[in-house]
Design a protein around this nucleic acid. Structure first.
Length: 424
RNA sequence: GGAGAGUUGGCAGAGUGGUCGAAUGCGGCGGUCUUGAAAACCGUUGUACCGCGAGGUACCGGGGGUUCGAAUCCCUCACUCUCCGCCA
């Protein structure tokens, strides 16, 4: 959520930049500014009435103390109409504020100046491509065949227990999951991230804080009996650690990471592109989160991109980094880099990570601010996060790219974690 | 699940209808003293909104109510703790 101050001070540039996200902000922004003026007017009226009420009340107290009960009771009579007008003003104010808030929440984050215009994923800009795409024999198989052949992931079993998109990992498949998680966490620790293990269900406030609510509740599994949501990403519980918090300037940047299972309803998409591990309702992911000072957040973003790059490099996967265009970048993000790895049997790029700077957009919802010695008042932090990494598509690429006649070769960095070098 | 007790500023903790944004202690910040530090002493110390400013308004877990006036009384929800039950 953008702040009123941002909107009032940079109205034109916000409208201009949001056009890059293909969002026509002008009517919303105009409405917000008008509502804010209305709000101020009503607020002033209400506060003046309250000030008068307070002073009368104080005087009545004094009169009672002095034993002038009659005068006190006379003063009480004056409060009747005042009370009525306070009530009216407060009610009107609540309406205007609700409307204002609704408008504010509907406005997407302003994309960074470097975000290119574009309609959708086809307009994303490849900023780097690296690694070697393996040349496989004609006998190459997509991962959904490989997992059956080696019996390491069982979708039918998941169907039986839960439903589509909830696979059961078995034997070396399960072990490989655990290996990847530990590898990612160890690398994260080396890079200075503090590991946290948060709850995987969150309340409504947390969902609002990171921007999943109110509009995107369809993405999340909702436990209606307790009004809790299954996390679609560890971003939600980890970032919400800092909800309603004022952190010391010296503590920034804060670097956290968490492994969690992630749950996504993702209804409505079918076909070859979502086969096998390409899209699941439950999957594992290690997420990195940073809380930074505004002036350092873009440097932090680069660091995070470098960290993710280091991971895919070590796994020996061919990858490319994309800068998302305005049409593809998320509602909450100011700048996002996606990582894709090449899956050599499907012969397509798979998104495995998304690293974003949200600037103050989430922080404003979270009310996460920082204060330094020389600062008169606290200011909003910038929040960032990225997958480091999401497992299923990494697994798909590893299985497909490393398949041989004799089985699937495990990347060397993972072997200390798996305890085996080949799946056969 | 049953019974009871709580929720106050960064922390601890007082405050049961008016002068309470809130005592006191700790912590933090500034200073005196000191070669420096500690101790001691003095001062200072929340957040948001409105206003050019003076100043004003709101916030004592959330929401609602009683009252001229609520941290204080009532209702309701959430959470925490203690005991009992159940249980990995």
């Amino acid at each position: 959520m953008l702040t009123l101050k941002q909107i009032a001070e940079n109205t034109d540039s916000i409208v201009e930049r949001l056009a890059v996200k293909r969002f026509d902000a002008r009517p919303v922004v105009d409405k917000i500014l008008a509502l804010n003026e209305k709000r101020k007017t009503i607020l002033t009226t209400a506060e003046e009435a309250k000030a008068e009420m307070n002073s009368i009340s104080k005087a009545i107290g004094q009169l009672f103390k002095e034993g002038k009960a009659q005068e006190a009771n006379a003063a009480k009579a004056k409060t009747v109409s005042l009370k009525e007008s306070i009530k009216n003003a407060d009610e009107e104010l609540a309406l205007v504020e609700a409307e204002l808030n609704e408008q504010l929440v509907s406005l997407p984050n302003v994309p960074h100046e470097s975000v290119p215009a574009g309609k959708g994923e086809e307009d994303n800009v490849v900023v780097k491509e690296a690694g070697e795409i393996p040349v496989l024999s004609d006998a190459k198989k997509p991962h959904w065949d490989l997992i059956k052949q080696y019996d390491i992931i069982d979708f039918e079993l998941g169907n039986k227990i839960t439903g589509a998109g909830f696979p059961v990992y078995k034997g070396k498949g399960a072990r490989l999951q655990r290996a990847l998680i530990n590898f990612f966490l160890d690398e994260g620790e080396k890079a200075g991230f503090l590991e946290v293990l948060p709850p995987v269900v969150v309340n409504e406030d947390s969902g609002f804080g990171t921007g999943q609510l109110p509009d995107k509740e369809g993405q999340m599994y909702h436990v209606t009996a307790d009004n809790l949501y299954l996390v679609p990403t560890a971003e939600v519980p980890v970032t919400n650690i800092y909800r309603d918090v004022i952190v010391n300037e010296e503590e920034l940047p804060i670097k956290n990471m968490a492994y969690t299972p992630c749950f996504r309803r993702e209804a409505g998409s079918w076909g070859a592109h979502v086969r096998g591990l390409n899209r699941l309702h439950q999957f594992d992911k290690v997420e990195i989160v940073q809380i930074a000072k505004p002036e350092q957040s873009y440097q932090v973003l680069e660091e995070m991109v470098a960290h993710v790059e280091n991971l895919v490099n070590k796994l020996g996967l061919p990858y490319r980094i994309l800068k998302l265009c305005g049409g593809d970048i998320s509602f909450t993000s100011a700048l996002t880099f996606d990582f894709e790895v090449y899956s050599a049997a499907q012969e397509r790029w798979l998104e495995v990570s998304s690293v974003s700077n949200f600037e103050a957009f989430q922080a404003n919802r979270l009310k996460c601010r920082y204060k330094g010695k020389d600062m008169k008042r606290p200011e909003l932090v910038h929040t960032l996060n990225g997958s480091a990494l999401a497992l299923p598509r990494i697994l798909a690429a590893i299985l497909e790219n490393n398949q041989t006649e004799n089985g699937i070769q495990i990347p060397e960095v993972l072997q200390p974690y798996t305890g085996f070098a080949v799946i056969n």
